[in-house]
Design a protein around this nucleic acid. Structure first.
Lengths: 205, 205
DNA sequence: GTCTATACTTCGATAGAC
DNA sequence: GTCTATCGAAGTATAGAC
C-alpha cells in the first residue's frame, strides 16, 4: 500500500538542506511577514534553487507548518524545563516578554485564520503551552501566598499573557505610551510578592 | 504647479464607487486576511472591474491605508462620544471586547510591520485612541474609588486592552481554555467596583 | 467614470535530465 | 539530491478608447 496517488517524490525529513530551507523561511517570516515567504524568496535566502522547496515540501502550507512546529516544540521544551526547576512570577513574565515570540505569534495567528492545517497546529500547541504555564503560575502564586479565591491562576495567566503581548506588539510599531510606567509597576508588584514569599512562610506573627 | 510628474489620473475621493471598493476591501480583510486583498479580488467582490481599483488608488498600499483610516476615524468618534457621557469600567471593557476590532487590529499590525506608510497611520491612530481611553478610564477608576497609587490608570488600561485582545484573538482560533472563568472574574470584579461606587460616596461609616 | 487591452512580474507546482 | 525547463494562474499597474 505504498502510494495510492501518483504523488511526486519528497526529500528526507532529516536532510540538512531541508533544515536550511526551514531556517530561511523562519528568517523571512520574522523579518518581512508571512507574505514574503514564497518558494522563490526562501530559495534565494537559503542560497538554493526555489524548486528544492517543492522537493522537500508538498506545498507552501507544509513549509509553514514545519516552521511553526519546529519553533513551537523548541519553545515548549524550554518552558517545561523551566517549569521543572523553581518557578517565580518574574521568570514567567520574562518568558512571555520575549518580543521575538510575539512577532512569531502575530504572523501565525494571521496565517491560521485562513489556513486550516496551520490553525489546527497552532491551537494544539496553544493548549499545551497554556497548560504548562498554568501549572507554573499556580505554583508561583501559591509560593507568593496569593489566595486563589482572590485571583484565580488562569486569570493571572491570561492577564500576564495579554499585557506582555500588547507591550511588545506596540513596541514593534513604535508605540510606547505608558509602557515605561507599566513595566515599572509590574516589576514593583513582583518584587513585593517575592518578598512576601520569603518573609511570611510560617504565617505573620 | 499642478502635476510635476506624469502621474495617471485618479478618481474623486467622494465617489460612490470608490466607497464600494473600500467596503469590499474591508470585507475581504476581515474574512480572509490581508493577503486576500488584491486588486482582482476587491474588484470581483465589489462587482466591478479590477482596474477601477487602480483608477481610484495610486497603489494597493493607498487602498489599505484608506480602509484603515476610515475605520479608525469612525471608531475614534464612537469612543469619544462614549467618553463624553458617563463612563463606567464596564462600558470600556465592552468597547474593547468587540472581536471585529481585534481581527482588524491583527491584520493591520501584521501589515504595518512591512509597510511604513501604514505603520505611521496605525501609530498615529493608536496614540489618539490610547489618550481617549486613558481619560475615560481615569474618570471611571476615580468614580470607583480605586486609588491611583495602587493601580495607575495607564496600567489598568493596558491590562484591560491586553486581556480582551488575547481573549478574542484566541477565540478566533478556537482556543477557549480558561476563558469562561476569566470573563466571569472580570464581570464580578466590575460588579464589585460599581457597587463600591454607589454605596461609599461620603466614605464608609 | 468605466471599459478593453495589455505589459510585465512573480507565484506555486510539476516533469524529467543528470 | 539537485538541476533545467516550463506551465498556467494571479499579481500590480498603465495606456487609451468610449
Amino acid at each position: 500500500m505504498a502510494g495510492t496517488s501518483p504523488a511526486r517524490r519528497i526529500g528526507a525529513p532529516d536532510s540538512k538542506t531541508r533544515a536550511r530551507l526551514v531556517d530561511a523561511a523562519e528568517q523571512l517570516l520574522l523579518d518581512e511577514g508571512y507574505a514574503a515567504v514564497t518558494s522563490r524568496r526562501v530559495g534565494a535566502k537559503a542560497g538554493l534553487k526555489p524548486q528544492l522547496v517543492h522537493y522537500y515540501f508538498q506545498s507552501m502550507d507544509d513549509l509553514f507548518t514545519e516552521v511553526f512546529r519546529r519553533r513551537a516544540e523548541e519553545n515548549l521544551t524550554r518552558v517545561e524545563r523551566i517549569l521543572a526547576g523553581g518557578v517565580t512570577l518574574r521568570t514567567l513574565w520574562e518568558l512571555n516578554s520575549d518580543p521575538r515570540g510575539t512577532i512569531f505569534s502575530i504572523e501565525f495567528v494571521a496565517l491560521a485564520k485562513h489556513h486550516k492545517a496551520i490553525r489546527a497546529e497552532v491551537a494544539r500547541y496553544a493548549e499545551r503551552y497554556r497548560a504548562a504555564q498554568l501549572r507554573a503560575i499556580t505554583a508561583a502564586l501559591e509560593a507568593s501566598r496569593v489566595p486563589g479565591g482572590q485571583l484565580p491562576p488562569v486569570v493571572a495567566l491570561l492577564l500576564m499573557t495579554g499585557l506582555s503581548q500588547v507591550l511588545s506588539l506596540e513596541e514593534a510599531l513604535g508605540i510606547e505610551a505608558g509602557h515605561e510606567e507599566t513595566v515599572a509597576f509590574v516589576a514593583e508588584l513582583m518584587e513585593r510578592l517575592e518578598t512576601a514569599d520569603r518573609s511570611t512562610d510560617g504565617g505573620p506573627p
